[in-house]
């Protein structure tokens, strides 16, 4: 759905995006992670044809961007670096203008489309109020509504839950999951690991302009082949597991061997009391930190 090859953007002496090969597949919820200033937004802008790449190729739906923008972009809904609207007009009037722009949706069904997206983002009640009177969260929802006009096949969202309260974040997350279930591919750029961990199926990590990791979330979080044991009898367990212990932090032991049941039987058989025991999984945070520190976690990317 989104494929880039050697995508590079240079601003003078600064290399903002360096040789990025993105691969977003149909049906993904792709989490695009990176610290502030890592080049996420520049990459998103290049995908949408706002910023022109220095070198490299971009394809959306198999068509070259920005050359095919006229046929590609009507199928893409986007939210880039916060929402924006004409403040003196109402939310409805804004959506009506955006809907009429470019190739434009049919005028006859415009009202129905606007009603639908306002309902989707939960703004039905305030659609007639001037945007100047909107809160940050309401503006965010309006931006999302504009992105949803014309039912896009691909949503490119940059920090979509920015400025929302926890309730709002959950509503938006549910809306996105619902859209995804309906067949929409979602490219979600974020610095919120928790958000990505909860929603995404694939993850790409950008660090200082380079894509240092791109993998399925389920692979990244697959068992590492080690078992974590928490026990009050740590010393005894250590003696029993002789040689298989990788690390010990107080009562927490890290044991080589993916078979938790076997480790458990061994410990219990030796009279060690066990509080907690399970296969080790890395959190997304650990994966990202490991990747951005330059140590590509070979043990978790088969």
């Amino acid at each position: 759905m989104i494929v880039t090859r050697g995508l590079t953007k240079r601003y003078g002496a600064v290399l903002a995006v360096d040789d990025v090969d993105l691969d977003v597949r149909t049906g993904d919820i792709y989490g695009f992670l990176g610290a502030n200033g890592s080049g996420k937004t520049t990459t998103v802008r290049m995908l949408l044809g706002l910023v022109l790449a220095t070198t490299g190729k971009i394809e959306l739906f198999g068509q070259a961007m920005p050359h095919a923008a006229r046929s590609v972009l009507p199928q893409v809904g986007s939210l880039v670096e916060g929402p924006a609207a004409y403040g003196h007009l109402s939310g409805r009037a804004n959506l009506s203008l955006f809907d009429a722009m470019g190739t434009g949706g049919p005028r006859r069904t415009r009202r129905a489309r606007i009603d639908e997206v306002l309902a989707q983002v939960g703004l039905t009640d305030v659609g007639r109020r001037a945007v100047n009177a909107y809160s940050l969260g309401m503006r965010q929802r309006l931006g999302l509504a504009a992105a949803l006009l014309r039912a896009p096949r691909l949503l490119v969202l940059d920090e979509p839950t920015n400025g929302l309260d926890p309730q709002g974040i959950r509503e938006i997350r549910e809306l996105l999951l619902q859209l995804h279930a309906g067949g929409t591919t979602i490219f979600l750029s974020s610095h919120l690991l928790a958000e990505v961990e909860q929603m995404c199926t694939r993850v790409g990590v950008l660090d200082r302009g380079r894509l240092v990791l791109q993998e399925k979330l389920s692979v990244l979080q697959a068992p590492t082949g080690r078992t974590v044991v928490r026990t009050p009898d740590a010393n005894r367990a250590q003696a029993l597991l002789d040689g298989r212990l990788e690390r010990r932090d107080g009562s927490r032991l890290l044991v080589r061997g993916a078979d938790a049941a076997e480790v458990n039987a061994l410990l219990v058989g030796g009279g060690v009391r066990v509080d907690e025991l399970g296969a080790e999984r890395r959190s997304l945070e650990q994966v990202v930190l490991a990747a951005t520190e330059g140590a590509v976690p070979g043990s978790v990317t088969p």
Binding site: R45, L48, G49, L50, A69, R70, L73, P74, V76, S78, V80, E81, G82, P83, A84, A85, Y86, G87, F98, M101, G102, T103, G143, A146
Partner: peptide, 14 residues
């Protein structure tokens, strides 16, 4: 300045 330019251009408007 208002940020609407990026949304206008990605509608897309040439």
């Amino acid at each position: 300045q208002a940020g609407t330019l990026r949304y206008v251009l990605t509608r897309p408007v040439g």
